[in-house]
Amino acid sequence: MSALAGIGAPWLLLARALRQSFRRGVSLREVLRQAYEMGNRSAWLVVSGLGFFGTVMVAIAHQQARRFTGNITVVGPAYFELLVREFGPLTVSLLAAARAAASSSAELASMTVNEQVEALEMSAGDPLADLVAPRVLASAVVVPALCVLGTVAATASAVATVSLAYGADGFSYMDGRFVDWGDVACGASKAVLCGLFIPAAASARGLSARGGAAAVGSAVTLGVVDAALGCLVIDFFIAVLFLLARA
């Protein structure tokens, strides 16, 4: 039951935040500030994480390929397609969930606990339009951008690993033979949906924190777990949807 609430509450909050932001307008300055917070500050995490991931993925592919053909270049294009469609968006949104959901649920929960959110309401502000909507809008743009960055980092490190460590032609790995518009659309729609969901999950937990310092801590934990689990669920359903569309 609480798991269902964890999945459902963010979508409700998202809908309400978007409606409020249409009604009251959103400060562009705040959106840009959030985009900087989330994008620039997560870039190092995404690039280093996906850089390591690319190398590990190639190592696994190499072990698998050695069993059949002894040649990694055969499975290279398939892995590249999987990276664009599946691994890239999933891993990047999990990392973005860790980074962005943790910081925004911590910020909103400590504001809620210290009654700053109520103070904002008292001075005719709207927490949904002023606090939640800028985060959602910024994240919907930033997560796809991070996704592109992460995919590039993973590909670059994969190419480097194949060329340097396995002595094969690394660039055969960047073969886009199997990648079509369906794969790109699949990856992009995952990134956008996760981008919308992550700040909404974090805000839902942050704004409902009650109590003292301990409540802030548990809001952070629950916010990140909801966001990451939501990304896994979104990833799964989009994958099913595109598979059905292809069939």
Partner: peptide, 19 residues
Amino acid sequence: GGARAVGHAAAAAVVWSSA
């Protein structure tokens, strides 16, 4: 610090563990 420090510690733990 106060409530802010608790949130910050939890967030830092999640980010650095993931990295």
